[in-house]
Simulated assay, not measured.
Amino acid sequence: MSTSLLTKPQMRGLLAKRLRFHMIGAFLVSIGVATAYKFAVAEPRKKAYADFYKNYNAAKEFEAMREAGIFQSVQPKGK
């Protein structure tokens, strides 16, 4: 009667082995998410701000808001 013996489970160093595997995986996932955020969110946002301020005229916007009566301390021209 030939029976095959089951191999003993690895107990010594199991935590270190599993932790090493999961730390590498977590690091790679975090690098991937950071890269995706940079190119999907941050770069388009910086480009949108740069495009907006390329032709932005603060004095013209101030005059438009003053004429609309938004400010309490500044009277519209002509009054």
Rank of each mutant, 00 (worst) to 15 (best):
E43V: 12
R18E: 03
A36G: 14
F27M: 11
S73H: 11
T3E: 02
F71G: 01
S30L: 13
R66Q: 10
A42G: 00
N55R: 08
T3F: 02
P44W: 00
A64R: 10
V74A: 08
E63V: 09
V29Y: 12
E43S: 08
F27Y: 10
K47S: 05
K46N: 09
G25R: 05
T35M: 15
Q75E: 09
N55A: 12
A68F: 02
H22A: 11
L6Y: 03
A40H: 06
D51R: 01
G32T: 14
F71W: 11
T3S: 04
K38S: 09
E43R: 04
A26H: 06
L14V: 12
F39M: 13
P44A: 07
M1Y: 08
A59G: 05
A40S: 15
I31Y: 01
T35D: 14
R45P: 00
A42S: 13
V29D: 12
F62N: 06
K77M: 06
P76S: 15
F21M: 13
Q75A: 13
S4Q: 10
G32W: 02
L6G: 05
A34R: 09
I24L: 08
R20Y: 04
Q72T: 12
M1P: 00
Y56P: 00
A42I: 03
E67F: 02
Y53R: 03
Q72K: 15
S2L: 14
E63H: 06
A59C: 09
I70Q: 01
S73L: 10
S4F: 03
F21K: 14
L15F: 09
P9K: 02
A26N: 09
E61H: 11
G78R: 03
Q72D: 14
